[in-house]
Amino acid sequence: MMYLQNKLLAKRQSYELAMQAALKDWRRDPVEFKCPACGSKKVATRPDLRGKNPCTCTTCNHHFDQPTHFVCDCPEPGTGSQCHDCPNFRKLLATVRAIAEELQSHPLYQNHLGRNS
């Protein structure tokens, strides 16, 4: 039982260290509006009273209501209400997972678990 508790604690600590390491390099990707018709980045937006965000492509004059991608505006990853749907947050979690797995495969990590069994 003690071995299992130590293993779970060590795994949690490796993920906490991985999160700290990943947050040092984290940056939110810039938001780019693209026209769904022609793919141009020359898009004009103007919020209206209905709470929608109508967009007009200045290249082909196509009108559409919403941007065709997720808009990330949280100040810190994981704090926003839609973070789990955010591609930036998913990318951060993949980085955290990779760092944690690298930490867990390190010989010192394995030796620590072996001593506490």
Rank of each mutant, 00 (worst) to 15 (best):
E76D: 10
T56D: 01
N116I: 07
K24R: 14
L108Y: 11
T59R: 09
G78V: 09
P75H: 07
L9D: 07
F70A: 07
L8F: 04
R27F: 08
C86L: 10
M2V: 04
N53R: 08
G51H: 02
P30W: 07
A94G: 14
L93D: 06
L17V: 03
T58C: 03
A22T: 09
Q66E: 12
P54F: 01
P87F: 15
R50T: 09
A21W: 11
H112K: 13
V31M: 09
H69T: 12
L108T: 08
P67D: 02
L9W: 03
D65S: 11
A100L: 05
N61Q: 14
P67E: 01
G80E: 11
A18S: 12
A94E: 15
C83Q: 10
C74L: 04
K52H: 09
D73F: 00
P107I: 12
E101H: 11
K91Y: 15
S14E: 03
H84C: 10
R46D: 03
D73A: 07
E32G: 06
K24H: 13
D48E: 05
V31Y: 13
K41S: 15
H112T: 09
C72K: 09
C35D: 03
Q66N: 12
D48C: 07
A22Y: 14
G51Y: 01
E101V: 00
Q5A: 06
H84P: 00
N111K: 13
T56G: 00
G80W: 06
T68I: 07
K11R: 08
L113W: 03
I99F: 11
L108C: 03
R115N: 06
Q110L: 15
K7Y: 02
V71I: 15
N116D: 07
C74G: 12
R50D: 04
A44N: 13
K34A: 08
C60V: 07
T59H: 12
H84L: 14
D48M: 05
C57Y: 06
P87D: 13
A21K: 15
R46F: 00
H62D: 03
D48Y: 04
R12P: 00
D29T: 11
Y3T: 01
D29C: 05
L92N: 02
T95N: 14
Q110K: 15
N53P: 02
A10H: 02
H84M: 13
Y109M: 09
A10S: 05
F70E: 04
